[in-house]
């Protein structure tokens, strides 16, 4: 296994962060997370994170295998939230960790330096130190109030987000209650992309929801197709 291209090339990573789906089985209104992710990928999602906090190891592993197959076809990175064993077991591209998860250097070591590592820091000091610690990108939020993560903390707002982005040179995604109406403002505040859960998984049409978000993010990023 070679290193993830997204871990090696910052331009490639910034592109992949444009529309980042946090795939949480608890948030899928259809009850079929694999179908939701397939639809969202067709619609234009550029990165997928499996966030399966409460599944058994076996269920998380099986789900991750299916998502890895989909993501590989779309050439989209698959990250696993927190569960390094699951990520390694299915050959996922990376891990997304928080401050109570394994330290970044431990993740790097266990992943033989090949994993893409996203991190959710909770203080300015942690944001500043993240690049030296080995993180590849940061998830910052919650920007708006969110209904999909109960332990998400106080909303930091667009200004709070813009302040935090100033403390890092790493690529960033904004997260927390982002919709197609607010995605452009998050990019304007300095994000490389937006991470969403409910905006896609709680939509009646995840494919259309992804399409609409992607159009907004691309326009805000000034990315043309090509």
């Amino acid at each position: 296994m070679t290193a993830s291209p997204w871990a090696e090339d910052p331009a490639c990573l910034r592109a992949a962060l444009a529309l980042y789906l946090v795939a949480d089985p608890e948030q899928s209104v259809s009850g079929d997370l694999v179908a939701d992710v397939a639809a969202a990928l067709a619609g234009g999602v550029t990165c997928v994170q499996l966030r399966a906090k409460r599944l058994t190891d076996l269920d998380a592993y099986r789900l991750a295998i299916e998502l890895a197959g989909l993501c590989r076809q779309y050439r989209v990175p698959l990250l696993v939230n927190d569960r390094l064993d699951v990520a390694l077991a299915v050959g996922a591209d990376g891990i997304h960790a928080g401050v109570t998860d394994l330290p970044i250097e431990v993740i790097q070591r266990l992943g033989n330096g090949r994993l893409l590592i996203g991190w959710s820091p909770e203080s300015d000091g942690q944001i500043s130190a993240a690049a030296a610690d080995g993180a590849h990108y940061l998830g910052l939020g919650p920007i708006f109030g969110t209904a999909t993560k109960v332990d998400a903390g106080e909303a930091i707002g667009l200004d709070g987000f813009a302040d935090r982005v100033c403390h890092t040179t790493l690529p960033t995604v904004g997260i927390g209650g982002i919709t197609s109406r607010t995605a452009a403002s998050v990019v304007a505040a300095g994000a490389d992309g937006v991470a969403v859960v409910g905006a896609i998984l709680r939509s009646s049409d995840p494919r259309q929801a992804a399409w609409d978000l992607r159009a907004v993010v691309d326009a805000a990023r000034g990315v043309r197709a090509g």
Partner: peptide, 20 residues
């Protein structure tokens, strides 16, 4: 028409996807 998926030729451009 492209790029449909992520590509080394244009690393800064996210893949547009199959619906596009």
């Amino acid at each position: 028409a492209g790029n449909v998926f992520a590509t080394r030729t244009h690393p800064d451009r996210p893949g547009r996807g199959l619906d596009w």
